[in-house]
Amino acid sequence: MRRGAIAVAAFSGLLALGPLVLDGYLLSLLALAFAFAFFGAAWNLMMGFAGMLSIGHGLYIGIGGYTVAVLLVTFGVSPWAGLPLAGLLCAGLGAAIAWTGFRFAVRGVYFALLTLAAAELARILFEHWPFVGGTGGFFLPALPPGNVPLLTLRGGPEFFYFAFLLLLTAALVLTLAIRHSRMGYRLMAIREDEDAARASGVPVLRMRIAAAALSGGMTGIGGGLFALMNGSLFPNTMMGVAISIEIMIAPIVGGLGTVFGPAIGALFVMPVHELSEHLAQEAGVFGLNTLIYGLLVLLVVLFLPAGIGPSVARLLRGRR
Protein backbone atom coordinates (compact mmCIF):
# COMPACT_ATOMS: atom_id res chain seq x y z
CA MET A 1 0.00 0.00 0.00
CA ARG A 2 2.73 2.46 0.97
CA ARG A 3 4.89 1.47 -2.01
CA GLY A 4 1.86 1.92 -4.25
CA ALA A 5 1.21 5.41 -2.86
CA ILE A 6 4.84 6.38 -3.49
CA ALA A 7 4.57 5.04 -7.03
CA VAL A 8 1.42 7.09 -7.70
CA ALA A 9 3.11 10.23 -6.34
CA ALA A 10 6.22 9.63 -8.45
CA PHE A 11 4.19 8.86 -11.57
CA SER A 12 1.95 11.92 -11.33
CA GLY A 13 4.68 14.21 -10.02
CA LEU A 14 6.96 13.38 -12.92
CA LEU A 15 4.22 13.77 -15.53
CA ALA A 16 3.11 17.08 -13.99
CA LEU A 17 6.46 18.48 -15.18
CA GLY A 18 5.56 17.53 -18.77
CA PRO A 19 4.40 20.98 -19.94
CA LEU A 20 7.85 22.39 -19.11
CA VAL A 21 9.49 20.35 -21.86
CA LEU A 22 6.75 19.18 -24.23
CA ASP A 23 5.11 21.05 -27.13
CA GLY A 24 1.39 21.40 -27.74
CA TYR A 25 1.16 18.39 -30.03
CA LEU A 26 2.76 16.04 -27.52
CA LEU A 27 0.70 17.54 -24.70
CA SER A 28 -2.57 16.87 -26.52
CA LEU A 29 -1.35 13.39 -27.37
CA LEU A 30 -0.56 12.69 -23.74
CA ALA A 31 -3.84 14.24 -22.60
CA LEU A 32 -5.57 11.70 -24.82
CA ALA A 33 -3.41 8.92 -23.36
CA PHE A 34 -4.37 10.04 -19.83
CA ALA A 35 -8.02 10.06 -20.84
CA PHE A 36 -7.81 6.48 -22.07
CA ALA A 37 -5.77 5.48 -19.02
CA PHE A 38 -8.58 6.93 -16.91
CA PHE A 39 -11.32 5.15 -18.86
CA GLY A 40 -9.24 1.99 -18.64
CA ALA A 41 -8.85 2.39 -14.88
CA ALA A 42 -12.61 2.78 -14.49
CA TRP A 43 -13.30 -0.23 -16.70
CA ASN A 44 -10.63 -2.21 -14.83
CA LEU A 45 -12.53 -1.75 -11.55
CA MET A 46 -15.35 -3.82 -13.04
CA MET A 47 -13.48 -6.32 -15.21
CA GLY A 48 -10.10 -6.50 -13.51
CA PHE A 49 -11.36 -6.61 -9.94
CA ALA A 50 -14.94 -7.90 -9.98
CA GLY A 51 -14.61 -9.94 -13.18
CA MET A 52 -17.61 -8.20 -14.76
CA LEU A 53 -16.86 -7.85 -18.49
CA SER A 54 -18.34 -4.67 -19.92
CA ILE A 55 -18.03 -4.22 -23.68
CA GLY A 56 -20.35 -1.23 -23.59
CA HIS A 57 -18.49 1.38 -21.58
CA GLY A 58 -19.08 3.77 -24.46
CA LEU A 59 -22.52 4.17 -22.88
CA TYR A 60 -21.03 6.07 -19.94
CA ILE A 61 -18.58 8.08 -22.08
CA GLY A 62 -21.45 9.11 -24.33
CA ILE A 63 -24.07 9.80 -21.67
CA GLY A 64 -21.48 11.65 -19.57
CA GLY A 65 -20.32 13.68 -22.56
CA TYR A 66 -23.80 14.59 -23.79
CA THR A 67 -24.97 15.43 -20.26
CA VAL A 68 -22.16 17.94 -19.76
CA ALA A 69 -22.43 19.36 -23.29
CA VAL A 70 -26.22 19.71 -23.40
CA LEU A 71 -26.35 21.20 -19.91
CA LEU A 72 -23.69 23.72 -20.93
CA VAL A 73 -24.98 24.68 -24.38
CA THR A 74 -28.73 24.29 -24.06
CA PHE A 75 -29.24 25.17 -20.40
CA GLY A 76 -26.18 27.29 -19.64
CA VAL A 77 -25.12 25.05 -16.73
CA SER A 78 -21.40 25.18 -15.91
CA PRO A 79 -19.42 21.95 -16.34
CA TRP A 80 -18.50 22.35 -12.66
CA ALA A 81 -22.07 21.21 -12.01
CA GLY A 82 -22.38 19.21 -15.22
CA LEU A 83 -19.49 16.84 -14.50
CA PRO A 84 -20.76 15.66 -11.09
CA LEU A 85 -24.26 15.31 -12.53
CA ALA A 86 -22.87 13.25 -15.42
CA GLY A 87 -21.06 11.09 -12.86
CA LEU A 88 -24.21 10.54 -10.80
CA LEU A 89 -26.33 9.75 -13.85
CA CYS A 90 -23.80 7.22 -15.15
CA ALA A 91 -23.37 5.68 -11.70
CA GLY A 92 -27.11 5.14 -11.67
CA LEU A 93 -27.00 3.57 -15.13
CA GLY A 94 -24.15 1.28 -14.08
CA ALA A 95 -26.05 0.23 -10.96
CA ALA A 96 -29.18 -0.45 -13.00
CA ILE A 97 -27.29 -2.64 -15.48
CA ALA A 98 -25.54 -4.56 -12.69
CA TRP A 99 -28.85 -5.11 -10.90
CA THR A 100 -30.55 -6.26 -14.10
CA GLY A 101 -27.70 -8.66 -14.79
CA PHE A 102 -27.88 -10.13 -11.30
CA ARG A 103 -31.66 -10.19 -11.06
CA PHE A 104 -32.02 -12.17 -14.27
CA ALA A 105 -28.86 -14.23 -13.62
CA VAL A 106 -27.12 -12.88 -16.73
CA ARG A 107 -23.52 -13.98 -16.20
CA GLY A 108 -20.18 -13.87 -17.98
CA VAL A 109 -20.40 -13.40 -21.74
CA TYR A 110 -24.14 -12.79 -21.52
CA PHE A 111 -23.55 -9.95 -19.09
CA ALA A 112 -21.07 -8.50 -21.61
CA LEU A 113 -23.77 -8.64 -24.28
CA LEU A 114 -26.16 -6.86 -21.93
CA THR A 115 -23.68 -3.98 -21.55
CA LEU A 116 -23.19 -3.86 -25.33
CA ALA A 117 -26.95 -3.82 -25.91
CA ALA A 118 -27.38 -0.92 -23.48
CA ALA A 119 -24.67 1.11 -25.23
CA GLU A 120 -26.04 0.36 -28.69
CA LEU A 121 -29.56 1.22 -27.57
CA ALA A 122 -28.34 4.59 -26.31
CA ARG A 123 -26.37 5.23 -29.52
CA ILE A 124 -29.38 4.52 -31.74
CA LEU A 125 -31.65 6.65 -29.54
CA PHE A 126 -29.22 9.56 -29.70
CA GLU A 127 -28.84 9.22 -33.46
CA HIS A 128 -32.59 9.71 -33.83
CA TRP A 129 -33.04 12.40 -31.21
CA PRO A 130 -33.08 15.89 -32.76
CA PHE A 131 -32.69 17.54 -29.34
CA VAL A 132 -29.07 16.32 -29.18
CA GLY A 133 -28.39 16.83 -32.89
CA GLY A 134 -28.93 13.25 -34.06
CA THR A 135 -26.26 11.85 -36.40
CA GLY A 136 -25.36 15.42 -37.36
CA GLY A 137 -23.67 15.86 -34.00
CA PHE A 138 -23.72 18.32 -31.14
CA PHE A 139 -21.19 21.16 -30.98
CA LEU A 140 -19.78 23.36 -28.28
CA PRO A 141 -19.43 27.03 -29.20
CA ALA A 142 -15.96 28.45 -29.78
CA LEU A 143 -14.17 29.61 -26.67
CA PRO A 144 -14.72 33.31 -25.93
CA PRO A 145 -11.65 35.55 -25.83
CA GLY A 146 -10.24 35.85 -22.34
CA ASN A 147 -11.47 32.36 -21.43
CA VAL A 148 -10.47 31.24 -17.95
CA PRO A 149 -10.00 27.45 -18.13
CA LEU A 150 -10.56 26.95 -14.42
CA LEU A 151 -13.99 28.61 -14.76
CA THR A 152 -15.19 27.07 -17.99
CA LEU A 153 -13.24 23.80 -17.72
CA ARG A 154 -12.30 24.30 -21.35
CA GLY A 155 -8.96 25.42 -22.76
CA GLY A 156 -5.88 24.40 -24.70
CA PRO A 157 -3.78 21.24 -24.64
CA GLU A 158 -2.02 22.26 -21.46
CA PHE A 159 -5.31 22.59 -19.55
CA PHE A 160 -6.60 19.18 -20.64
CA TYR A 161 -3.19 17.66 -20.00
CA PHE A 162 -3.45 18.68 -16.37
CA ALA A 163 -7.17 17.98 -16.11
CA PHE A 164 -6.87 14.40 -17.30
CA LEU A 165 -3.67 13.84 -15.35
CA LEU A 166 -5.55 14.94 -12.23
CA LEU A 167 -8.47 12.61 -13.01
CA LEU A 168 -6.05 9.75 -13.69
CA THR A 169 -4.20 10.40 -10.43
CA ALA A 170 -7.50 10.35 -8.55
CA ALA A 171 -8.39 7.06 -10.26
CA LEU A 172 -5.03 5.54 -9.32
CA VAL A 173 -5.41 6.61 -5.68
CA LEU A 174 -8.96 5.26 -5.61
CA THR A 175 -7.95 1.94 -7.19
CA LEU A 176 -5.06 1.61 -4.77
CA ALA A 177 -7.32 2.31 -1.79
CA ILE A 178 -9.91 -0.19 -3.03
CA ARG A 179 -7.26 -2.84 -3.69
CA HIS A 180 -6.26 -2.64 -0.02
CA SER A 181 -9.73 -2.48 1.46
CA ARG A 182 -12.53 -4.88 2.28
CA MET A 183 -14.26 -3.89 -0.95
CA GLY A 184 -11.21 -4.83 -3.05
CA TYR A 185 -10.83 -8.23 -1.43
CA ARG A 186 -14.52 -8.90 -1.88
CA LEU A 187 -14.51 -7.88 -5.54
CA MET A 188 -11.52 -10.12 -6.23
CA ALA A 189 -13.23 -12.98 -4.40
CA ILE A 190 -16.27 -12.58 -6.65
CA ARG A 191 -14.02 -12.56 -9.70
CA GLU A 192 -12.27 -15.77 -8.64
CA ASP A 193 -15.21 -17.84 -7.45
CA GLU A 194 -18.62 -16.39 -6.82
CA ASP A 195 -19.92 -19.37 -4.84
CA ALA A 196 -16.90 -19.40 -2.55
CA ALA A 197 -17.23 -15.63 -2.13
CA ARG A 198 -20.86 -15.92 -1.04
CA ALA A 199 -20.00 -18.72 1.36
CA SER A 200 -17.37 -16.36 2.83
CA GLY A 201 -20.06 -13.79 3.56
CA VAL A 202 -19.54 -11.52 0.53
CA PRO A 203 -22.80 -9.71 -0.37
CA VAL A 204 -22.38 -10.34 -4.09
CA LEU A 205 -25.26 -8.24 -5.43
CA ARG A 206 -24.27 -5.19 -3.37
CA MET A 207 -20.62 -5.49 -4.41
CA ARG A 208 -21.44 -5.92 -8.10
CA ILE A 209 -23.70 -2.86 -8.01
CA ALA A 210 -21.04 -0.85 -6.18
CA ALA A 211 -18.35 -1.80 -8.71
CA ALA A 212 -20.55 -0.98 -11.70
CA ALA A 213 -21.79 2.30 -10.20
CA LEU A 214 -18.27 3.42 -9.38
CA SER A 215 -16.95 2.39 -12.78
CA GLY A 216 -19.87 3.96 -14.65
CA GLY A 217 -19.74 7.16 -12.60
CA MET A 218 -16.01 7.60 -13.16
CA THR A 219 -16.37 6.93 -16.89
CA GLY A 220 -19.23 9.43 -17.05
CA ILE A 221 -17.10 12.18 -15.52
CA GLY A 222 -14.25 11.29 -17.88
CA GLY A 223 -16.67 11.31 -20.82
CA GLY A 224 -17.82 14.79 -19.81
CA LEU A 225 -14.28 16.13 -19.82
CA PHE A 226 -13.59 14.21 -23.05
CA ALA A 227 -16.51 16.05 -24.69
CA LEU A 228 -15.22 19.40 -23.43
CA MET A 229 -11.81 18.60 -24.93
CA ASN A 230 -13.18 17.44 -28.31
CA GLY A 231 -15.71 20.28 -28.67
CA SER A 232 -17.99 18.09 -30.77
CA LEU A 233 -20.06 15.00 -30.03
CA PHE A 234 -21.40 12.34 -32.39
CA PRO A 235 -23.31 9.31 -31.06
CA ASN A 236 -21.13 6.97 -33.10
CA THR A 237 -17.78 8.28 -31.83
CA MET A 238 -18.91 8.93 -28.26
CA MET A 239 -20.74 5.66 -27.57
CA GLY A 240 -20.21 3.39 -30.56
CA VAL A 241 -18.68 -0.07 -30.37
CA ALA A 242 -15.28 1.28 -31.44
CA ILE A 243 -14.69 3.42 -28.35
CA SER A 244 -16.05 0.69 -26.04
CA ILE A 245 -13.45 -1.67 -27.46
CA GLU A 246 -10.67 0.89 -27.55
CA ILE A 247 -10.81 1.70 -23.83
CA MET A 248 -10.33 -2.01 -23.05
CA ILE A 249 -6.98 -2.23 -24.85
CA ALA A 250 -4.90 -0.20 -22.38
CA PRO A 251 -5.87 -2.16 -19.23
CA ILE A 252 -5.53 -5.51 -21.03
CA VAL A 253 -2.10 -4.61 -22.44
CA GLY A 254 -0.96 -3.00 -19.19
CA GLY A 255 -2.26 -5.64 -16.79
CA LEU A 256 -5.83 -6.56 -15.87
CA GLY A 257 -6.78 -6.23 -12.23
CA THR A 258 -3.66 -4.27 -11.30
CA VAL A 259 -3.56 -0.70 -10.02
CA PHE A 260 -1.14 0.65 -12.64
CA GLY A 261 -2.04 -1.61 -15.58
CA PRO A 262 -4.37 0.84 -17.34
CA ALA A 263 -1.92 3.75 -17.04
CA ILE A 264 1.07 1.69 -18.22
CA GLY A 265 -0.99 0.25 -21.05
CA ALA A 266 -2.25 3.65 -22.25
CA LEU A 267 1.22 5.17 -22.18
CA PHE A 268 2.46 2.23 -24.29
CA VAL A 269 -0.47 2.00 -26.67
CA MET A 270 -0.85 5.71 -27.48
CA PRO A 271 2.70 6.27 -28.86
CA VAL A 272 2.45 3.00 -30.79
CA HIS A 273 -0.81 4.21 -32.26
CA GLU A 274 0.69 7.57 -33.29
CA LEU A 275 3.92 6.09 -34.57
CA SER A 276 2.15 3.57 -36.77
CA GLU A 277 0.04 6.39 -38.18
CA HIS A 278 3.22 8.32 -39.07
CA LEU A 279 4.75 5.27 -40.69
CA ALA A 280 1.63 4.60 -42.70
CA GLN A 281 1.56 8.20 -43.93
CA GLU A 282 5.20 8.15 -44.98
CA ALA A 283 4.86 4.82 -46.71
CA GLY A 284 1.65 6.03 -48.30
CA VAL A 285 -0.08 2.76 -47.57
CA PHE A 286 -3.65 3.23 -46.40
CA GLY A 287 -4.48 1.01 -43.41
CA LEU A 288 -0.87 0.13 -42.61
CA ASN A 289 -1.20 1.94 -39.25
CA THR A 290 -4.05 -0.30 -38.12
CA LEU A 291 -2.04 -3.35 -39.16
CA ILE A 292 1.08 -2.31 -37.20
CA TYR A 293 -0.97 -1.24 -34.18
CA GLY A 294 -2.96 -4.46 -34.22
CA LEU A 295 0.13 -6.60 -34.56
CA LEU A 296 1.90 -4.92 -31.65
CA VAL A 297 -1.10 -5.27 -29.36
CA LEU A 298 -1.39 -8.91 -30.47
CA LEU A 299 2.30 -9.52 -29.68
CA VAL A 300 1.91 -8.11 -26.17
CA VAL A 301 -1.19 -10.18 -25.48
CA LEU A 302 0.52 -13.32 -26.85
CA PHE A 303 3.84 -13.01 -25.09
CA LEU A 304 2.92 -11.06 -21.96
CA PRO A 305 -0.54 -12.45 -21.23
CA ALA A 306 -0.51 -10.99 -17.71
CA GLY A 307 0.14 -7.55 -19.22
CA ILE A 308 3.18 -5.30 -19.35
CA GLY A 309 2.96 -4.12 -15.73
CA PRO A 310 2.98 -7.53 -13.99
CA SER A 311 5.54 -8.94 -16.44
CA VAL A 312 8.00 -6.11 -15.77
CA ALA A 313 7.37 -6.41 -12.03
CA ARG A 314 8.12 -10.14 -12.17
CA LEU A 315 11.32 -9.44 -14.11
CA LEU A 316 12.45 -6.92 -11.50
CA ARG A 317 11.60 -9.28 -8.65
CA GLY A 318 13.52 -12.07 -10.35
CA ARG A 319 16.65 -9.92 -10.64
CA ARG A 320 16.67 -8.87 -7.03
Binding site: R182, Y185, R186, G201, V202
Partner: peptide, 11 residues
Protein backbone atom coordinates in the same frame (compact mmCIF):
# COMPACT_ATOMS: atom_id res chain seq x y z
CA UNK B 1 -8.55 -12.33 4.69
CA UNK B 2 -11.51 -12.64 2.32
CA UNK B 3 -13.12 -14.84 4.96
CA UNK B 4 -12.07 -12.56 7.81
CA UNK B 5 -13.79 -9.60 6.15
CA UNK B 6 -17.12 -11.30 6.80
CA UNK B 7 -16.97 -9.90 10.34
CA UNK B 8 -14.20 -7.29 10.19
CA UNK B 9 -14.29 -4.16 8.10
CA UNK B 10 -10.79 -2.86 8.82
CA UNK B 11 -7.75 -4.22 7.03
Amino acid sequence: MVGAFARESRL
